[in-house]
Every structure is written in C-alpha cells, then in structure tokens.
Amino acid sequence: MNYIFIFLILISFICAIFNHSLDVMINDMLKASQRAVEISFGLIGIMAFWLGMVNIAKSSGLMELFSKIIKKPLLIIFPDLKDNDEAFSNVALNISANALGLQNAATPFGIKAMESMQEKNPDKNIATNSMCTFLAINTAGFQIVPAVVIAILSASGMKNPSVIILPTLIVTTIAFLSALFFSKILERYFK
C-alpha cells in the first residue's frame, strides 16, 4: 500500500506537468481532503443511530436467537463441526453479528471459531475444509443493512438512501452463495 500510494501520486504529478494542469490538481487535492472530513463528520449521526439500534438487538438476545435459527442450515455447510460445539456456536454468532453490521463484535467470534477449529486440526499449518468455507463466506460480507454506505449517501445529500438496501441484499446473498459453492467445489482439488 505504501509503494502504491507514493507511486500513484508521483505518476499524477508527472501527468499533470504534461497536461499543464498542476495548479488545478493541487487545488483539487486540497479540496478533496476537506470534502473527506465533511463526509466523515456527516456519518456520525447515522452511525450512532444504527449502532444504537443493533446494540439493543445484541443485549436483548436477538443476535443469539438469530444464531440459533441459522444453526440447522449451518450444520449442512459445516459437517465436520458436528462434534465441535464451541467452534460451531462461534461460527453462528459471527455470521449473525456480521448480518447485523456489528463488525467489531463479529471479529472476536470469528477468531474464537478459528481457534477451536485449529485445535482439532491435525496439521496446524494447513487450513481445513471448514476453515476455508468459513473464511470464504466471511469475505462475501453478508449484511442485512449496509449502514456505512447508507450513511455516506445520506451525508452527501441523497433523499432516499434506503433504496439501495434491497439490491445490495440481493447481490450480497448471491456473493455469499457463490462463495459457499466455490469453496465446496474447490476443496476437492486443493489438498
């Protein structure tokens, strides 16, 4: 990331010299930095509202309830976790927390799940099938409400930012299912 950052800015300077637009470029860069802070501050309200809501869901036990509901279908996805209840519960809680958009809460569950899968892993260097499936579905980022994106749209003055919820939900579900599909197919070819 460090080299990419330096390289891209230097390339831009060189291009700007050729296009005689160095003054415009510097102005735009300064304006962009200001805009970035304006947008960030615009996020505070919606993020506070949403994180407040999901915290109610977390402490009232709705998150646990959700994780119990998804346990049955999850057992089909993770057959080797049948005897590893700790890993299995943490996988379910991680997916539930992610679905609600509680990324900060989801990561510790995910790491705990990985740790208990690692305990049963015969070769500690090589990921098991369940580990790979769990990682793949996590990278699909399944989320019911994309709160940060809605906040950015709203901070930029969009009247109805919640119109993106349904298309985003459909796309993220497709990505989730294809991550599952690919990890199940590919696990036979990667030993």
Partner: peptide, 25 residues
C-alpha cells in the same frame, strides 16, 4: 485477520473462493 490469528500458512482454496465470489457479486 482470521488465518493470521491462528497461524495458518497454507490457505488452500480459501482466497480463490473469496475472489471468485467477489467477481460473481
């Protein structure tokens, strides 16, 4: 984050599955 936390070195098909799912998405 997840594989680093437990010291997994061989990721096998995990990254490829994730990237393919990204493309489908």
């Amino acid at each position: 984050v997840y594989f680093g936390a437990v010291g997994i070195k061989k990721f096998r098909h995990a990254l490829l599955s994730g990237i393919l799912a990204d493309i489908i998405g």
